[in-house]
Computed example of a mutant assay.
Amino acid sequence: MELRHLRYFAAVADTCHFGQAAKRLHVAQPALSYAIRQLEAELDVALFTRTTRQVALTPAGEYFRDEVERILASVDNAVHGVRRLADGRSGLIRLGLTGTAAFSHLPQIARTMQQELPGVALQIQTDMLTPEQCNGLRSGTMELGILRPPAIGEDIELRTIAHEPLVLAVSAEHRLASEPVVSLADLRSEPFVMYGNRESAVTSVLLRSCRQAGFTPHREHEAPGTAVLLALVTAGLGVGVVPASVRSLPLDGLVIRDLPDAGEVELALAWRRSNDHPLVEAVGRLIESLYAADAASAGH
């Protein structure tokens, strides 16, 4: 039994007319009649009653019609799904984000994907530092990351999508909370809350900027990610220097101030170099376009 036999049967069952069915299928009527006889012979059952005036389904034919409709619908859905998958419009993407990227861009990413790629399921892992994301990309537990360069280890491809200045985070009771702009020199004697991972891109930029300002920051407390870092700062345990996207996270008791001489960090889209799945490329292009649009609007 071939798939074409089922499609031929469905057309005849729908029209109850071999001539009309043949015209719909763009086949010769004798070829269609022969194919139906082949199908009946294989099933060893009559699917139609035929007279000179009419063609009608037998009870077996009526049952078979319902089953064939279900089978053909499943086949069509499978074909459609395979094509969407090959075009990068269907499937699952596991996306890792740095803490601040989640605060500022995740709602926009999720909303745009729902609009542009509704067949793609998005699984999010947030507040991941760069080393953790690179490990996830290499191990295959995630397909895309939004992280701070440089990448840690090999086989990771990066595409810069944004540059973010570093800003100062202090508790509302801190002496610098009322200052609109602060310099690094003002932080010389302050205890710092810093990321616990020494390979953090934010920490690398901060240490370099502090050296240029003539001091080494005093690491009073360490945090595994941005959310914990900001909580410790809010509690008054030290000051924090973080990417400016934390401004999108309203937190009672936390004050964000400009820190012009602290430098800036890159934000990059990351994926495993050997992962050439079209879905990864499709979602990556969408994310990159969102950040490019934000940068263009900020420049006006």
Results as ranks from 00 to 15, higher is better:
Q54P: 04
V55A: 08
V55M: 05
V55F: 07
A56T: 13
A56D: 15
L57R: 03
T58C: 09
T58G: 08
P59C: 01
A60L: 05
A60D: 08
G61R: 02
Y63S: 15
F64I: 00
F64Q: 01
R65T: 02
R65Y: 07
D66C: 06
D66R: 02
D66I: 07
V68K: 00
E69I: 00
E69K: 00
E69G: 00
R70W: 01
I71M: 13
L72C: 01
D76P: 00
D76S: 01
D76Q: 04
N77A: 14
N77L: 10
V79A: 15
H80G: 04
H80S: 15
G81F: 07
R83D: 06
R83L: 13
R84F: 07
L85D: 15
A86V: 13
S90H: 15
S90I: 15
G91S: 05
I93N: 02
I93W: 01
I93H: 05
R94N: 01
L95A: 07
L95M: 09
L95F: 04
G96M: 13
T98A: 14
T98C: 10
G99L: 13
G99C: 10
G99Q: 09
G99W: 11
T100K: 03
T100A: 11
T100Q: 05
F103P: 05
F103W: 10
S104A: 15
H105Y: 09
H105I: 02
L106H: 04
P107F: 08
P107L: 12
Q108R: 13
Q108S: 12
Q108V: 11
Q108F: 13
I109A: 03
I109T: 05
I109Q: 08
I109E: 10
R111V: 10
R111K: 11
T112Y: 05
Q114S: 07
Q114I: 14
Q114P: 06
Q114T: 12
Q115N: 11
E116R: 15
L117F: 04
L117A: 05
P118Y: 14
G119F: 02
V120D: 09
V120Q: 09
V120W: 04
A121W: 10
L122K: 02
Q123C: 13
I124V: 06
T126F: 11
D127F: 10
D127R: 02
M128V: 07
L129H: 14
T130E: 15
P131G: 08
P131K: 07
E132F: 06
C134L: 07
N135P: 07
G136W: 03
G136H: 10
G136Y: 11
L137Y: 03
S139I: 10
G140T: 01
G140K: 06
E143C: 03
E143A: 12
E143W: 00
L144D: 02
L144Y: 03
G145A: 13
I146G: 02
I146C: 06
L147V: 03
L147F: 07
P149E: 14
P150H: 12
A151E: 12
I152M: 07
I152Y: 08
G153L: 08
G153T: 11
D155S: 15
I156E: 09
I156R: 12
I156P: 09
E157D: 14
E157C: 09
L158S: 09
L158F: 08
L158V: 05
R159Y: 11
R159V: 10
T160D: 11
T160C: 03
A162S: 14
A162H: 14
P165H: 03
P165I: 00
V167W: 04
L168A: 02
V170T: 05
V170D: 02
V170C: 13
A172L: 06
E173H: 09
H174T: 01
L176A: 01
